[in-house]
Amino acid sequence: MSISARTSMPRTVAVHTALILYTLIALFPVFVILINSMKSRKAIFREPLALPGPDTFDLVGFQTVLTQGNFPLYFGNSMIVTVVSLALVLVFGAMAAFALSEYRFRGNFLMGLYLAIGIMIPIRLGTVAILKLMAAAHLTNTLTSLILVYTAQGLPLAIFILSEFMRTVSDDLKNAGRIDGLSEYWIFFTLVLPLVRPAMATVAVFTMIPIWNDLWFPLILAPSESTKTVTLGAQTFIGQYVTNWNAVLASLSLAILPVLVLYMIFSRQLIRGITSGAVK
């Protein structure tokens, strides 16, 4: 029986109607914010669902945000924290995953189990003690404290996914390297790492989103003006300008756009990562 025989016209229409309806629900709020951030105050209230036209187009909200808020600074902080944590999670995670998947040693299984605890138990529950630790190390209100926390938070899942992938790297290749006299470090960095690049990209996307979006740790560990991340900065800015609708909508748009652009670049990678079985 051919596949086309299974699909009837009315059924196809029903399926698409359901999916389009849910797509609208998913995208509508984002759309409303983006269009209204570019309208004048009157237009925002009079016709919230209309696109900005020649007489309603107004960027006053963005002007307020860019002159009153420290968004370039917040953005820089978020970039530093996300990129550095991500790099540490990928390098340290891949190293540990390699040790667990490549060598047989006593305690290998227990070490794997120990490192997997963090997948299920959220790091947030240790906040009280983390704050004490950071205060004792004079790291409160530094980006370093956030980087350390996010690295610890990202490692368990990264190690879990990467070690699954590293088991699939051919032994012949590594053994050929060993016969040629390459050190274990050289084998890892030049032979194995390039081969697990697709898995690294998947881990990168999974690690990046929660770090960029986190509100809890910036609020607790680094709330000072000079160390605010975009998420916390937008939160406090909106709190102060809550009645200035143009500014609120503009700051929301500014917070949405970078993530949306990143998502468009990485979405194929993300979806391929999830469907390739890394998380099953």
Partner: peptide, 30 residues
């Protein structure tokens, strides 16, 4: 003793233990 295994594991285990596991138990203790 295969030192490279320890070197591969050390950074991840140290950060994970210091920033996640110890604080979790320290919180239970607090």
């Amino acid at each position: 003793f295969r030192w490279h295994i320890a070197v591969f594991l050390a950074p991840a285990v140290v950060i994970y233990t210091l920033v996640m596991i110890i604080p979790l138990f320290a919180t239970l203790d607090l």
